[in-house]
Nucleic acid binder design. Structure first.
Lengths: 235, 235
DNA sequence: TGTACATCAGTGAACGCGCGTTCACTGATGTAC
DNA sequence: TGTACATCAGTGAACGCGCGTTCACTGATGTAC
């Protein structure tokens, strides 16, 4: 019927091929080394041809960032799905391990999200923020379930009032059904894992601890133990 | 005597002026946006004139990185010096607060050290590594003193053997006179503060907790409390 | 089935730009006699 | 004090490069009659 079916399939494939080549290039040259002309060269195409697929370099970057956020969150959600629902400690462990594994497997995508911005590019918040929240929500969901089952220990009696108030606002706005302490705990977990993973990624941890994986496991286990007293350590 | 005294003073001043301009430019354009020609333009000088002072762009970057590591460590050491020696908790607090304060005041220098590498540039390890260790040593020093005074709680009974072994090697190599557990604690502290500060720097914490300073203070206090049971919370 | 036509992915040349680095030089400054 | 000379910070032109983006175009593909 539609006279456009001709290349509809290959169009999507080219979009993917462009992004895949962009990722390769960033892996080799750093996120700031991304260049349309270099992508075109690699694809045996002229540079203007790319404009059929992305209206500008910045739009391509935005697509890459969007994909990265989603792939990261997908990896975590997928890991969560492999563990029975009521094994909260194991679920947390699986999700945090997936966070790290994805970052190590896709270092440039991780840098794209959490590292220095690319010069001359500003990410549109309306695209990145909702995508960014997905990973956070996976963790909040597990903690909320654990709390509901009475498995969570929350010993934050004296949160700073300004922080508690703002966390509550976020909870209301996002419609999370959790107390402030759970939100605080999730945020703390986020800063902890970010520190562990991003230092490991830039090769700063390895010279000190040697076995970065064992170090990560030890720290994450200590974090889970402190939050889920009933957890039995060995998944 | 020496026929070279003529411009000796201004030579050092120009070195500093070039670095200062480079820092301004990186603050505006990101670390990857650094450019010799743009620096020359800002200084009302032609680009080749810069080659009297730095043999290449990469050497300028190395100088900037070296300075950043040292300024960071200096800020921490200086903060440590303002607190009486036997107030270990206050010293830790002062040093970690200085870590954060310096990062917030010099965000691009911080990115230069802990963020994405600049495309096409590789830092010479023999320059950066010793400079990088200085900040670490400030923290190790405080913990060692606290341990010696019996003020430190070390509840790491089961460190992963591979990690403990490697930490011991570093201790021996660097000549630190501390047990493995102290080294482990310092490393953990490092990953914690890195996570807190670098997420804050990229504006990822603020949308969640609102008052990033109160959040930082709360987390650091919990860390110090856990390590120094006798600390009385209010410096 | 055969021909005229529309679509549109990709081309090739060009734009104006900024970059790091080299080279032979200029001309003010300070030194030596 | 005056002149000849050496120093050397900075100049200006040029090199070869890569970049994002625009524009009029080509030519194979598929459609309509």
């Amino acid at each position: 019927m539609s006279p456009r079916t001709r290349n509809e399939v290959s169009y999507e494939a080219v979009l993917e091929a462009i992004k895949a080549t962009a990722r390769q290039q960033m892996a080799a040259e750093g996120t700031a080394g991304l260049s349309l002309r270099a992508i075109a060269r690699e694809l045996n195409i002229t540079a203007p041809a790319l404009y059929r697929y992305y209206p500008s370099r910045d739009d391509l970057i935005t697509a890459l960032i969007f994909d990265a956020y989603n792939a990261h969150a997908d990896a975590m959600a997928q890991a969560d799905g492999t563990v029975p629902q009521e094994y909260y400690g194991e679920r947390l462990w699986a999700v945090l391990a997936a966070y790290r594994a994805w970052a190590l497997q896709h270092p440039t995508d991780f840098q794209l999200i959490y590292g220095n911005p690319i010069p001359g590019y500003e990410a549109p918040v309306e695209v990145t923020l909702p995508a960014a929240r997905r990973a956070f929500e996976v963790v909040v969901g597990i903690l909320a379930a654990a709390l509901h089952a009475g498995a969570l220990r929350l010993d934050f009696d004296d949160l700073p009032p300004t922080v508690a108030e703002h966390l509550q606002q976020v909870i209301d706005y996002e419609g999370y059904a959790v107390p402030v302490q759970v939100m605080y705990l999730a945020t703390v977990g986020w800063t902890r894992i970010h520190g562990l993973v991003s230092l490991e990624l830039f090769n700063q941890t390895q010279p000190v601890v040697g076995d970065t994986e064992a170090f990560f496991r030890c720290e994450i286990e200590r974090f889970i133990e402190a939050s889920l007293p009933a957890w039995d350590h060995n998944p």
